[in-house]
């Protein structure tokens, strides 16, 4: 599979999962939250300091439709992570690859 095709398919999968699939995710508490509730330390959690972020709790503030609101937050998150992690990886990588003399950037 060509690299471009591979990355396009991978990115589409991530966007579909975050943008569409996330709506169907279980809303039960996760393992840690459940255990915290069960054993009695859930109340020691503070209110999140970033709770007023426009994408807090994976919902987009100001967007009424729940499906759209969650999907939008997911897509924005995927894009942010892709740019930050991809940029970081480009910054620390070894320049050029051993078997190619030209460096395309």
């Amino acid at each position: 599979m060509r690299s471009r095709r591979f990355f396009v398919i991978g990115l589409l999968a991530a966007l579909l999962i975050a943008g569409v699939g996330s709506y169907y995710a279980s809303s039960h508490p996760d393992g840690l939250e459940f255990v915290a509730g069960e054993t009695g330390f859930l109340d020691s959690a503070d209110e999140p300091k970033t709770g007023d972020s426009p994408f807090a709790d994976y919902q987009t503030s100001g967007v009424e439709d729940e499906r759209l609101s969650g999907g939008l937050a997911g897509v924005v998150g995927v894009a942010l992570v892709l740019v930050l992690a991809g940029g970081l990886a480009y910054a620390v990588r070894r320049r050029g690859s051993p078997d190619s003399s030209e460096s395309t950037d």
Binding site: S3, F7, G10, L11, A13, A14, I17, V78, A79, V81, L82, V83, L84, A85, G86, G87, L88, A89, Y90, V92, R93, R94, R95, G96, S97, P98, S100, S103, T104
Partner: peptide, 15 residues
Amino acid sequence: LDDRTAPMAGLVAAF
């Protein structure tokens, strides 16, 4: 990481 695998890191994080 090299030129070939750096995009993979971005994709893996996004996924």
